[in-house]
Amino acid sequence: MTTEQLHPSPDSPPQQHSSHDPHDLPGPHGSYNPRSPHDPHGSPHGGDHLLFLAEALRTFHDTGALAPSGPALVNALVVPALSRPNRPISVLEVGAGTGVVTRRLAQVLRPGDRLHVVEANPRFADRLREDPALAARRPGVGLRLSACRVEELPEAAAGPEGGGGPEDGGGSERYDVIVSGLPFTNFEPALVRNILDLYLRLLTPGGELTYFGYLGTTTARTLTSGPRRSARHRAVVRLLRRFEATYGLGERTVWRNLPPARAHLLRAPGPYA
């Protein structure tokens, strides 16, 4: 496992961050409607889509898509970082890929905030290390990259009770926000259950989690896969629906994505400080 601090460029100008807006909050009737501001940075690498496609074809089980998330889906996923308390926050992004969500988070976070990015694919991790938009983030925003799976983090190994501090590799690191880009329906149900339980352990009381799934995957899996894979897929979907029924705040269907996706917003038990 490789964990490293990514330091901002001292010559980079401060970036603007989005202020709180009531439309960023969960809306009634189980939906939420974040704003979709234009990201002035976009992708700093013209080859992001080509790299993503190459890695998807090479390791589709772990990548789970053929292209990075589009702007509308990205903005749906970063809602909790916009609807935030008036204090520094800590954010964990899991499965960053080529960094489309990472760059948006780096844009909206404020001095004193911390962003911990976890990416297991070494080629994606290398791209994140070289990303000029991340290097040019607002001074005072801490950024750490862990090139590993989320279940390999020291915080995960520490178990529910934690122990030690984040600065000495202990397990007491907790996060106000977790943004997950993992392709859950590609995994075995037991692994998905373990990851969801880990997210709940890593969140502060009242902390929020976002993740997404593509529309129509159950039908596609049934038509293109054998009975065993179809049954595994349906089992993961049932597990996710139960998790959302217990902790969910709302969901948003993003039609302007390839393919269309549904973003889910969930909250850990307990009062949010």
Rank of each mutant, 00 (worst) to 15 (best):
T2M: 07
T3Y: 03
L6N: 09
P8T: 10
P14A: 12
Q15G: 11
S18T: 13
P22G: 05
H23V: 00
D24N: 13
G30K: 01
G30S: 04
G30Q: 03
S31G: 05
Y32V: 05
R35P: 13
P40A: 08
P40W: 06
H41Q: 14
G42Y: 03
H45V: 07
G46K: 13
G47A: 13
H49S: 14
L53T: 08
A54K: 12
A54R: 13
E55A: 05
A67L: 07
A72S: 04
V78N: 07
V79P: 00
S90N: 14
L92A: 03
L92I: 01
V94C: 08
G95Y: 02
V101P: 03
T102C: 00
Q107N: 02
G112P: 04
G112V: 07
L115H: 03
E119W: 07
A120Y: 11
P122K: 06
R123G: 02
E130R: 15
D131K: 09
R137Q: 08
R138T: 15
G140S: 11
G142S: 15
A147R: 14
R149I: 05
E152G: 06
E155Q: 13
P166M: 10
G169N: 00
E173P: 00
I178A: 06
V179C: 11
G181N: 08
N186Q: 09
L191Y: 07
I195Q: 03
I195P: 01
L196R: 03
D197F: 01
L200N: 09
L200G: 08
G207R: 03
L209E: 05
G216V: 08
T218G: 12
T218P: 00
T219H: 12
T222R: 14
L223M: 14
G226M: 02
S230T: 15
R242A: 12
E244H: 15
Y247Q: 11
Y247K: 10
G250Y: 11
P259N: 08
P260D: 09
H264W: 15
